[in-house]
Amino acid sequence: MTNIIDNRPSEADNPGWIEWATGLLAAVLVIGMLVWVTWEALTQENRPPEFTVTITGRQMVQGNYRVSFDIANTAPQTASAVAVRGEIIQDGKAVEEVEVTFDYVPAQSQAAGAVLFSRDPGQDEVRVRAVGYTTP
């Protein structure tokens, strides 16, 4: 309880058990978080970003052929300005290239996106891969 005496709030001398219980619960949460972050700080390795691209869908949309994909960063470092290139491969050569840039792919997280080709690749191989990034 806070008592406001002479317009100057002052904490009561005999707070109820609820206040102590809330305080203890909060202390446990804060200490838990501190321990977690400290553990992260101590065990964190400085591995640069690594990407895996998983194609999640292929669809013809209004004259474009859309290949949607998830890009996952498995490393503990975040990458920014991640350039991803999609290619249609015919006889070992890229016949169409499209590029998309992700603002961020956070550490150990994933982001979703899509590349739009001008034609249906049909039986040809579609390759989507990250071609570069910067550190934030």
Binding site: E11, P15, E19, W20, T22, G23, L24, L25, A26, A27, L29, V30
Partner: peptide, 13 residues
Amino acid sequence: WHAFLRFTLPGYV
């Protein structure tokens, strides 16, 4: 620390 435990820490949470 009475006020710290009862007000500040819950406030932060």
